[in-house]
């Protein structure tokens, strides 16, 4: 908020070879237990998503209504055939949780990608060009920030129907203003630092200034923001399912599973517990990772921690 300082940490980092970089990341991780945990969990979650068909013991969509609502293996009546039990249509909970990772990560990743791209471009333009363009873009951004996102969700779900792509689009659009704001703020900060001015007076082109000076400094804050927003989107997906507005019921998303399980909370608790745990762990992972990234990528904070 106060006096701005040009970042140097990231530039130094850029100049090293990849082995050194890896070793550097390793050292950074060692220093932070939370970050380490977040990082390990993140890798595990991504691997689970990628190798879901290999890991999952059953087809997550295969129904067997005659074997519905079976408890986890360690409870009376459970079997190791379905270690985490079955849902109301007799589908294997474990396999659904594993495949749910794909849905959640897809929503989170592409949602953030769209929001990030939209937000970064509009924020860059607004912050760099300034003046009326800035006013116009930030006007639109503020309008979108002020409207409850639920209104968008309902409308999009009603017009375009419920599917994965639409959920991603909704999140991408409604979340982009946050990225735009942060980007614009950073751009303004960098511009005011005098650091860009000296580049301009040295005869650098707009493109060069953007790519060499502004973008590298944006990457840190934006990656940190993206990590937190991914966690938020996984959360929103569950919230949308609560309102019956998320992906279609046939898609094994954690939100859908939680929504179905909610009404059996006291009698077949596992149906809602596992997706709840999965959401909590994933959100935790992205939060830990985000905290760590913020510490590492934001030199202002790093300095103050020494």
């Amino acid at each position: 908020m106060t006096a701005a300082t040009p970042q140097v940490g990231f530039d130094e980092f850029e100049e090293q070879t990849w082995q050194k970089r890896l070793a550097y990341v390793g050292r950074l991780l060692q220093r932070d237990r939370g970050g380490m945990l977040g990082f390990i969990l993140f890798i595990l979650i991504v691997l689970t998503a990628i190798f879901a068909p290999v890991i999952a013991p059953h087809d997550p969509l295969k129904q067997n209504l005659r074997a519905a609502k079976q408890p986890p293996a360690w409870q009376e009546g459970g079997s190791w055939e379905q270690p985490l039990g079955t849902d109301t249509l007799g589908r294997d909970m474990l396999s659904r949780i594993i495949f749910g990772t794909r849905v959640s990560l897809t929503v989170g990743f592409f949602g953030v990608l769209i929001a990030g791209t939209l937000g970064m471009v509009s924020g860059l333009v607004a912050g760099y060009v300034g003046g009326r363009v800035d006013g116009a873009i930030m006007g639109v951004v503020n309008i979108f920030l002020a409207i409850p996102y639920l209104v968008f969700v309902v409308v999009v779900a009603a017009i375009l129907g419920r599917n994965l792509l639409n959920v991603i689009l909704i999140f991408g659009i409604t979340d982009s203003p946050i990225f735009a704001r942060v980007t614009r703020g950073e751009v303004l900060r960098i511009r005011e630092s005098g650091y860009v001015e000296s580049a301009v007076s040295a005869g650098a082109s707009t493109g060069r200034i953007l790519f060499d000076h502004i973008l590298p400094n944006l990457i840190g804050p934006l990656i940190t923001l993206a990590t937190f927003e991914m966690s938020a989107m996984i959360f929103y997906e569950a919230g949308l399912s609560f309102l019956g507005l998320s992906v279609p019921p046939s898609v094994p998303s954690w939100g859908n599973m939680l929504q179905v399980g909610r009404q059996y909370l006291t009698i077949y608790p596992w149906i809602a517990t596992w997706p709840g745990v999965a959401i909590a762990i994933t959100a935790l992972t992205f939060n830990l990772l985000g905290d760590w990234l913020r510490d590492v990528l934001d030199p202002r904070l790093r300095r103050s921690r020494k």
Partner: peptide, 11 residues
Amino acid sequence: GLFGQTIPNFW
């Protein structure tokens, strides 16, 4: 700090 952001509020 962690659970506040990892437990869905309706749950």
